[in-house]
Design a protein around this nucleic acid. Sequence first.
RNA 1: GAUUCCGUAGCUCAGCUGGUAGAGCAAUACACUUUUAAUGUAUGGGCCCUGGGUUCGAAUCCCAGCGGGAUCACCA
Length: 603
Amino acid sequence: MTQKLVEILTLERKLSAKILAFIVLSYLCCLKKYNMSAFELSEQEIQRRESLNKLREMGINPYPADLYPVSDYAAELKKQFVDGKQVCIAGRMMSQRVMGKASFAELQDSSGRIQVYFNRDEICPGEDKTLYNDVFKKLLDLGDFIGVKGYVFKTQVGETSIHVQEFTLLSKSLKPLPLPKIDAEGKIHDAFTDPEMRYRQRYADLVVNPQVKDIFIKRTKLFSAMRQFFNDAGYMEVETPVLQSIPGGAAARPFVTHHNALDIPLYMRIANELYLKRLIVGGFDGVYEFSKNFRNEGMDRTHNPEFTAMEIYVSYKDYNWMMDFTERLLEHCAIEVNGSSETTFGEHTINFKAPYKRVTMRQSIIDFTGFDIAGKTEEELFEAAKSMGIAVDSTMGKGKLIDEIFGEKCEGNYIQPTFITDYPKEMSPLCKEHRDNPELTERFELMVCGKEVANAYSELNDPIDQRERFEEQVRLSEKGDDEAGQFIDYDFLRSLEYGMPPTSGLGIGMDRLIMYLTNNPSIQEVLFFPQMRPEVHQQKVELSDNEKFIFDSLQKEQKMALLRLKELVNLSNKAWDVSVKNLTKQGLVKVTKIDEELLIEIL
RNA sequence: GAUUCCGUAGCUCAGCUGGUAGAGCAAUACACUUUUAAUGUAUGGGCCCUGGGUUCGAAUCCCAGCGGGAUCACCA
């Protein structure tokens, strides 16, 4: 402890005694409270802690508990200018322009920013000017939360502002925020753009990048719009288990966890489909759920390990009805989110206005390859795929081959919302067989910008067929198809045996949809906290092993030739160089040049 | 998983063919009563991601690692 104080004294000797005393004090506080070394704080962070303590000494609580009676919001006051209106607003101080006895600052609340005007003699009508000179000008920092009471006016330049009559510190900010600035031409300087820092510190991202906040406001609007649409249609929002003993409803690698009391493995859900259908069996007409799903697979700009899907099941309907429903739903959502059915995604303008084009998978493959899959054997499909330059292997069944051809040659071409219908049976184990063709299923996917955003079926409700399809999946899985399901959910089959009415179900990838509606090519931009490798905090050591070794070696003689010591410790050039520089920097040793010889000594 | 680019002050970024670190903003001090990227003057602030190598000398060149981005592959 004493040693550290000495180090601080040496390091900070250029600072005035007053500041120094404070630093030592606050260092002791920090050490006791946070078990943290003062060296980990930047100069500005130390200064802010210093201001914090000064405020406390002045009897100002930097973290008051009292309610603050906010009456207005920045955006509204600027939109509806009412001269002289008395207001009370609160937010972060994001800029400060001090001009002697008058100052301007910007206050940022949840709605935006508004300028506030401070006049010394109005803040401090008497002799004592500390509140303005010290508290406002010096002890407040950018990022602090303050509340102001005053009246609305326009400055000579015409900027709507609040003439402050009284201000209150509401919460002190100890860490400087990134500070992007916008110049007169609207150009942004010093933008906080590094994706890693933005995702890891989303809170800071949200404070300084209003366009990021907008994305998430739109995200919430999308959920509300969808919910409203379903509720208006009379369907019920439900919740089903996230922890499942059999992960079903999709083919994906699940996360595994363990339940201690039951002593069994449990899986995080990969889909909620099978549970929602159980509820249809139970007699609900329409059920939907926004479900967080978890898949233990690769991560990239369109895949996060946890993502949100919406699934809805409606009884007595088929997939044709669901197509109508889906296009009306998406048109409604696009308008609620963006005010228009049109949205821009990269170079494309997408129009979500219903109705959407409907193309069968067979027709789509004919359109883009000239090849007709109808009535072909597995061998013929295999050869066709191969001739198209698609990587094929012997584990692939008919359905998989068709899916590969579609994915490779067709999918990417559908920019405007398009329903692709009638998928091969093998790929759709939960979907009802097509009424006109036993090789196909009554399934559609909605393609937007070459990617699927929705998937829907006339749900399979024949329990015997369902059992056979599950068993076929298990066979495919054993054959080596890692996309095929490995588990049979017998409880789900039991529920079907009681009877499920004809039902159509729809699943929508919410993250992907909001990417389209907010023009973001990356899923990380539309998730508050995208998954990241955990940060590693490197503990700063005062002396490395090398440095200690050099110091100890030197201790015996106190002073010796630099080259001789180097030979003695026998470190690599790099290690030697870094260590000596560090020791010198910390004021523990000194290198001097006498004549042509370099000497090193302990201080 | 493959390829490729990046990691320098609180933030945004310079730093050439190796010679012990620069700018703007932010910070500190002073001046300034309607400014607005306020202004002017002065000052302080760096484990140059980590480890190793080459070299008299590395932020810079080489190797390995860590973290991130992009592209591709994989992905109901």
